[in-house]
Write a protein that binds this DNA or RNA. Sequence first.
DNA 1: ACATAACCGTAACGCTTGTTGTGTGAATGG
DNA 2: CCATTCACACAACAAGCGTTACGGTTATGT
Lengths: 185, 185
Amino acid sequence: MLAAHGFGGLTLRAVAAELGATTGLLTHYFPAKRDLVAYALDLLTERTASRPRRAAGDGLAALRAALLDILPLTAEATDSNRIWVSSWDTALADPALSDDHARKYEQSRVRLGELVSAAQRLGELPAGDPARIAAGAQSFVLGLVVQALFNPTAFPPRHQVELLDDYLASLASPTSSGGDHPASA
Amino acid sequence: MLAAHGFGGLTLRAVAAELGATTGLLTHYFPAKRDLVAYALDLLTERTASRPRRAAGDGLAALRAALLDILPLTAEATDSNRIWVSSWDTALADPALSDDHARKYEQSRVRLGELVSAAQRLGELPAGDPARIAAGAQSFVLGLVVQALFNPTAFPPRHQVELLDDYLASLASPTSSGGDHPASA
DNA sequence: ACATAACCGTAACGCTTGTTGTGTGAATGG
DNA sequence: CCATTCACACAACAAGCGTTACGGTTATGT
C-alpha cells in the first residue's frame, strides 16, 4: 500500500482497512498521525535491518555485500526503497522526522565505515579516512537507488551491480590524493 | 513554500494565495491538480536548467563544474533540491510523473556522458563506457544531495566538494577492470 | 464477584481538500 | 456598438481527512 501510494497518500482509514481494523484502534495506540508515521518509519527501519542479508565475507567483500543489500535488486527491496524514498517528502517537512532520518543515515555510515576500515586493514582498500569513504559509498548507493526506482528498465539488477562494482574498483585503486589532508581551512 | 512544506503539502489555495489570486484562476488554467503539479515540475526543471552555471573549463573541469552545479551548496540550490527530492513521493505514485522524472534524469546522464567523453578525449579520464561513468557520477551526486539535505551539519558545502573531488580523483585513476566484463555469475 | 481499566468498533465532528458552478468586468471582433 | 468570448473572483459542493466522544466488550486485579 505504502509502496504504491507513497507516504503522501497515507491515511488512517487505509491503514486501518489493511489491518482489518478501524480508526479507533489506531487512535488508541497513536495519539496523532505523526506518531503513526514515526512508527511506520521505525518499523521500516527495523524490517530493513533484520532483512536476510547475503553472506558476507571479510573486508571488501563484506562492504560490497552490505551495499548490495541496500539496492533494489529484488521486488521486496524495491518496495522497501520505494517507501523509503517516498518518506523523504514527509520527513523533509518535519524537523523531528528529518533528524530521525539524519541519525539513521549517520548510523549506516558508521557501519559502512567499519567495513571500510576492515578492508583497509586487509590491504584491499588504500588508506584514507574511513568515514569519508563510507560517506561517499553511501551517497553512491543512495543515488543509485533513486535512479533505479525511477527507471527500472535502464537500471536492471545486473546493471546496478555493474555500476557498484565499477565504483568499488575505482575505490580499490590507489589515487594520487590517497590519504593526505591538504591542510584544508 | 514548496521548499518548506514539500509537494505533499501543496494545495491549490496555498498556491493561489502566494500568487495573490484565487482558486478560480488556477482551475481556469489547469483542469486538474495533476496538471498544476506537472507544470510546477516543468517550471522547476526550466528554472534549474537556466540557473547561472559556474564557469566551466574543458574536460574534467567541466564535468566537475556540472556536478557542483547540482549540489546544494547555496541556499537557493538547497531549496531547489529540497523541492526536487520532495517531488519524488508524488512522482513515484504517478506513472506519468515517474516517466517524466526518468526522462529528465536520463537527459542529465546524457549531458554528463558528453562531458565524460570530452574528458576522456583529453586524457583526463581513463577509457570506459561514458554512459556508465555518467550514470555512476549522477548516482553519486544524487545521493550526496539527499544526505546533505537531511544532515546539512555533517555535509557542509566544503565537505560536499571534498567528497565529490574524492570521487572524481578515484575516477581519474585507472582501474584494473577498465571496461572489461568479468563474466559475473 | 465485582470494580476498574484496557481495548476497540461506531459514529460524528470540524476542517480542508479538489472540483464545479455562477457571475462580473474586461477584452475582442465583426 | 453590440455580441461574444475570455479571464477571473466568489461561493458552494461533496468527499475525504485527522481527531474526538462514546458505547460495549473483554481482560485484570482484589
